[in-house]
Design a protein around this nucleic acid. Structure first.
Lengths: 200, 200
DNA sequence: AAAAACTGTTGATATGGGTCATGGCAAAAG
DNA sequence: CTTTTGCCATGACCCATATCAACAGTTTTT
C-alpha cells in the first residue's frame, strides 16, 4: 500500500471509518477516483450540464448554489476537507444540473464518474454497502437541515451553524453563508454584530 | 408466489420498479416485513424513543413532525400509499427520535425493523442495492426540498406543492400542510382564497 | 342530541427580516 | 502605487408573513 499517492490517503481513512475494506478492495476503490486540482472560482458543475462526477474534497473549499431568476444566489451545500459534493439530482439521475459548484479556494478533489461508480458498486457488495451508507447518512443530514430551517429563526440558524460547523463558518465568505442559512448578507451582518456586543 | 398476502403486493411492485429480484429474493425480502394496522391519531414514532422501524405505506396517510418548545408543530414529512416514512436520524443511527410520526387516517403499513434490515442487506448484494437506491433518491428528494424552501416565497411553495403532490394536498389537514411549507395556517388559508378568486 | 374539540376563515395589527442606498476597507489587478 | 473589485457594515424604510382575536362549520365525545 506504500505506492499510493498521498492525495488518496484522506479518502482511504474516510472509507475505513465507515466500512472495512481489504487492501485489495481499497486499491480497487481508489483506482476508480482521479485527482483533480482546481483553482479558486473555477466551476466543476454548471446548470444544464450533467454532473458527471461525485467529488471528495482532499484540500480546499467548495460551494454548491442555485441562481434564481432575479439573480439571487442560494447556497445549497458547502464542502471542505473530507466532505463530498455534487448536484445529486443531476448525478444520481444523470440529467442536467440546476446547481453551480464552484471552488472557493484552490482545491484538490478526488473524482469518481457515474459510470465508474456503477461498475464499482456492481463489482462487489462492500462497495455497494459503502455508497448505501453515504446515501443513508446524507438523507439523515438533509432531514436535520430541513428541520432546522423550519424550526429556527435567522439568529438561531446562525447559532446552530457555528456550533455545528465552526470550521466552515470561519472559512467561507459571509454572503455565501447567509444564503445557505436563508437570509440576506445584511441580516447576517447585523446578527453577528449583535453577538459581538452581547458577549462583552 | 400466489400465497403472498395481498398487503405485500404494492411493496413487491414498488421494489420491482427499482431493482430486479428473483422470486426467491422477493420472498426473502417481504418476509422481513410485518403488516401493521394502525388507527387514526395513533403514533408509530415518538421523541425520546428509538425509531425501531422503517415503514412502507400500503394504505392510509401519515405525518412526521416535530414540536418546538413553544408548542409549534412543524411537519417534516407526509406519507401516503407507496411512500416510506420514519425518523431517519433515529432509525439509521438507532438513537432517540426527535419526531412524532402519527397516522392521519386508519392505515396499513409494512414494517421492517432495523435488525432485520441489517441482516437482509448482509444476506445479498441486491438487497443492499435496493436500500442504496432508496438512500440516493431520498437524498436527491430532500435536496430538492431544501432548494425550494430557500428559493421560493410562501405562495410559490404552495403552488409547487400542489403541482408535485396533488394527492397529498387534497388529503391532509391544511394546518399540517402549512407547517410542512413553513407558514402559518392563516397564511395558507389566504393564499388558497386568493387562488380561488383569481381562477374565476 | 348536546357539548366539546378540532379545523379553517377572515380581519386588524405587528414585526422579523428584506430592500435600497451609502461607505469603508482589503485584496486583486493593472 | 493606484485603481478596481469583492466583501462586509450600517442606516432608513418597507413588506411578506406572523400574531392575535373572533367566528363558523364539522367532527368527535359523552
Amino acid at each position: 500500500m506504500s505506492d499510493i499517492p498521498e492525495e488518496y490517503l484522506p479518502l482511504i481513512a474516510h472509507v475505513q471509518k465507515r466500512v472495512s475494506f481489504s487492501d485489495t478492495e481499497i486499491r480497487t476503490f481508489i483506482e476508480a477516483f482521479q485527482v483533480k486540482k482546481i483553482k479558486k472560482r473555477q466551476f466543476i458543475i454548471q446548470p444544464d450540464f450533467v454532473a458527471t462526477h461525485r467529488n471528495y474534497v482532499v484540500k480546499g473549499a467548495l460551494r454548491g448554489y442555485t441562481v434564481a431568476d432575479g439573480g439571487q444566489e442560494n447556497t445549497i451545500q458547502f464542502a471542505i476537507e473530507d466532505w463530498w459534493i455534487s448536484d445529486y439530482n443531476s448525478y444520481i439521475y444523470q440529467k442536467p444540473a440546476t446547481m453551480f459548484v464552484m471552488a472557493l479556494e484552490d482545491s484538490v478533489l478526488l473524482q469518481i464518474d457515474h459510470r465508474a461508480e456503477e461498475q464499482l458498486k456492481q463489482s462487489g457488495q462492500k462497495f455497494e454497502t459503502f455508497f448505501r451508507i453515504m446515501g443513508e447518512r446524507s438523507t439523515a443530514y438533509m432531514q436535520r437541515r430541513i428541520i432546522r430551517n423550519l424550526t429556527l429563526n435567522a439568529e438561531e440558524r446562525y447559532e446552530e451553524f457555528i456550533k455545528n460547523y465552526p470550521l466552515i463558518a470561519q472559512r467561507v465568505p459571509q454572503y455565501t453563508l447567509a444564503s445557505y442559512l436563508g437570509m440576506t448578507t445584511e441580516s447576517l451582518s447585523r446578527i453577528r454584530n449583535k453577538r459581538v456586543h452581547k458577549k462583552s
